[in-house]
């Protein structure tokens, strides 16, 4: 499944998109996931490799992708983390 340079620092937006789609659709094959996330196939594969290494996603026998509990938690942590900062900003009426 190796498809080029490995990802050193992933784009949080791409990561969040993949996880969100997997959360909503439960199980998808690579092509359907690439279409749903709007990513090129090659880019998706590189992200999936990286996510598999971190145990965020897993592949079944048919090659379909599912989100792990760790992956779902990471997504929730990411949202919580951003909210921790954005939530503290007060917006004066301008």
């Amino acid at each position: 499944m190796n498809s080029g340079e490995p990802i050193s620092k992933p784009d949080l937006y791409v990561l969040a998109r993949i996880i969100k789609v997997l959360k909503e659709r439960q199980k998808l094959n690579r092509t359907a996931l690439a279409t749903a996330t709007g990513l090129s196939y090659d880019r998706l594969i590189r992200y999936l490799e990286w996510m598999e290494g971190k145990e965020f996603v897993q592949f079944d026998a048919e090659g379909d992708i599912t989100l792990t509990k760790k992956g779902a938690k990471t997504y929730d942590d990411l949202v919580k983390w951003i909210l921790q900062y954005v939530g503290k900003v007060r917006f004066p009426k301008i």
Partner: peptide, 19 residues
């Protein structure tokens, strides 16, 4: 939680639009 985030972001982006 996600809705909270988008609501807060909407406030931020609206303020920036005003700016």
């Amino acid at each position: 939680m996600e809705q909270n985030l988008t609501a807060k972001m909407e406030m931020l982006m609206t303020a920036l639009d005003q700016v």
